[in-house]
Structure formats: structure tokens, C-alpha cells
Design a protein around this nucleic acid. Structure first.
Length: 312
DNA sequence: CGGCTTTGACCTGCGC
DNA sequence: GCGCAGGTCAAAGCCG
């Protein structure tokens, strides 16, 4: 519940972990990776807008992905949003800085709304104050899919569900099952277009994915793992393609080809075509809401879906 | 039996 | 200060 017209008090304290630079790994490798993934990637402005590429490449290690597994995809990006302000000085837990997250509590990014364990120390209040102002980077995906909960290579535990105002669809809250990982995600359906699933990721994984992709047929393996390790990389294990995430707006679509495995496993009921849209959420929840609303309301998906996309 | 989901209660922030 | 909405907790139940 926030007012879009009002600056979010948290905005000034939005925290980007020290590893934030790694958010931008897409800068250097996206062409190559997408090419390898079989994506026909059309990049308009990314190169000029993205900041420096981080020193370390997440793609250095093994790669089980076989380009032949992936169908041709069309990726279209636009870059109208702003990069998040530099908050690298904020004491947020960092995926690449495990000492930060592990030295305090298991879930240091817990918001102020959380009932905390009875720890009657004075410092707790201060901690709370600080933590209250710390927010993990968040990224939202708008996925046109019948599947609510898209697999992304990580294991999630649902910890809550809430009815959303002005929406017939509830919002589900998930937390990464890794005890040291503070990543959360929210999954909800767009009230304007029930076919669109909005998945919001918050934070960065501090561990590798668990390789849930069963047989791995058509899935991406190590590449996805390495990418996720730097925080801003997503994948759809039920798809033969994956999607990349970087700060700013990125929109794309592709033909999702569920493997017979995933279908058999019940993760999907039938082969479907899924359209993905992604953009980094604005620094504030308000902007986030605006962004999402405008995105869905103005047919963002329609803008990015290539004519070749079809629903099966 | 462990892991996960469900669900009502609780807490906090924000607008009025 | 009050009410609302979002976010989270945690007990209970379910399931493999």
C-alpha cells in the first residue's frame, strides 16, 4: 500500500549489494550467450547504457547447455528505465559477500514488518532501523503462462499468501529454501490480464541453483548456475531457453518448449508458448507498481511479442 | 518423518 | 489515531 505520488522513504536506502557490479554481467556476454542459446537477440541500446562489466565472468566454468537443444528465439530489448542508484555503500547482505549475511541472522534482509525473535537487546532496535531501510534489488517478470510458479532452478518455500486488493488473484510469497539465502519472490497474476503471471524476485542468491531440472533435457545446467550466482540471471527450466536479467528494462519473448519431462513431472500440463517480459523494478515499491501497471496496461507484452509467437 | 503448503494472526507503514 | 493493505510468522495439515 503505497502512494505513487509520494517518494518512497526507503528509496534513499535501497541497497545494492557489493556485488552489484555483477548485475551487469549481461553487458558483455549477452550477445554471445543468447546466440549460444539460440536467441535471435536484437539489442538496441543496452551496450551504451549498461555500466562497466564486472571483472569476473560467471560463465567461466562448465556448461552443459547444448545450443542444439534450443529453438530459435527472438529477444527484443528496450532500455527506457534507469539504472538503480549506486548504493554500494549500504550494508546489505551480499550474494558475493557471504560473510555479511552469515554473520548476523539467517535472514538479515527481513523487513521491519517481520516479527523478530525476542531479543531484548538495545542494538536490535538499531539493527531493525537499519534493516528497515535496506532493500534488496527486485526484478519483476511478466510471464504469459498458464503456469503460476515457473521453475527457475532454485527451490522455493511458500511462506505466505495474501489477497491482493483490486485483484481476484492472490499473491504468493516464496523464500529460497537455502537457509543462508535471503532471496524472496512474489508470484501473482495480473488482474488486468489473468494470463500474465508477475513474478518479482528480491535479492540475490548466495548459492548455486539446486539443479531441479530433473533429467536436464533441454535445460541449461551450469550456465544458468553461474549466471544466477552473480545474482541477475534467470532461467526457465521447463523451457529450452533461458532469460537474462539486468538492471533496466529488458523485454523479450520466446517460444517455450516444455520438455516431455517437465510435462510428465506435472510442472506443465502441455506444451505452451510463454512470453516473457522483464524489467527491473523501480527503486521504490511505488514506482514498481507504476511500472508494472503501465507495462500491463499499455500492452507491453504486446509490444514485444514477435509476430511469430504463437500459443499452442 | 521431513519438507512443503495452507491459512489465520500479527506487525508495520502509510494515507487520511 | 485509526483503518487499510502489504508482508511475514508459525501452527496445523498434507504428502511422498
Amino acid at each position: 500500500m503505497s502512494n505513487p505520488s509520494k517518494p518512497d522513504p526507503d528509496e534513499s536506502s535501497w541497497s545494492v549489494p557489493d556485488s552489484d557490479n555483477q548485475l551487469y554481467f549481461f553487458h558483455y556476454h549477452h550477445h554471445q550467450m543468447l546466440a549460444e542459446l539460440g536467441w535471435n537477440y536484437t539489442d538496441h541500446q543496452v551496450e551504451q547504457r549498461l555500466p562497466e562489466f564486472p571483472p569476473s565472468s560467471p560463465l567461466a566454468d562448465g556448461d552443459r547447455y547444448h545450443p542444439s537443444d534450443a529453438p530459435p528465439h527472438t529477444v527484443t530489448t528496450s532500455t527506457s528505465s534507469q539504472l538503480p542508484p549506486d548504493r554500494s555503500s549500504d550494508p546489505a547482505p551480499s550474494a558475493s559477500n557471504p560473510s555479511v549475511s552469515s554473520s548476523s541472522s539467517e535472514d538479515p534482509a527481513e523487513k521491519s514488518g517481520v516479527r523478530t525473535a525476542p531479543a531484548p537487546e538495545i542494538s536490535t532496535k538499531e539493527k531493525k532501523k537499519v534493516q528497515k531501510r535496506v532493500r534488496q534489488p527486485r526484478f519483476a517478470f511478466m510471464t504469459k503462462s498458464e503456469v503460476d510458479h515457473l521453475e527457475d532452478g532454485y527451490r522455493w518455500r511458500k511462506y505466505g499468501q495474501k489477497a491482493v486488493k483490486n485483484s481476484p488473484f492472490p499473491r504468493s510469497y516464496y523464500r529460497c529454501t537455502n537457509s543462508k539465502c535471503t532471496v524472496k519472490k512474489r508470484v501473482e497474476r495480473s488482474s488486468e490480464d489473468p494470463a500474465i503471471v508477475i513474478t518479482t524476485y528480491e535479492g540475490q542468491h548466495c548459492h548455486h541453483s539446486v539443479g531441479l531440472h530433473r533429467s536436464g533435457a533441454g535445460f541449461l545446467g551450469r550456465r544458468e548456475i553461474g549466471a544466477i550466482n552473480v545474482g541477475q540471471f534467470g532461467a526457465c527450466p521447463t523451457s529450452t531457453s533461458q532469460f537474462l536479467i539486468y538492471p533496466g528494462v529488458m523485454q523479450f519473448s520466446h517460444h517455450e518448449q516444455h520438455t516431455s519431462d517437465s510435462i510428465a513431472q506435472g510442472s506443465v500440463s502441455a506444451p505452451t508458448t510463454t512470453q516473457y517480459s522483464h524489467q527491473q523494478l523501480a527503486a521504490t515499491a511505488d514506482e514498481e507498481k507504476e511500472t508494472l501497471q503501465s507495462s500491463t496496461g499499455e500492452g507491453l507484452l504486446g509490444d514485444i511479442v514477435s509476430p511469430g509467437i504463437r500459443n499452442l
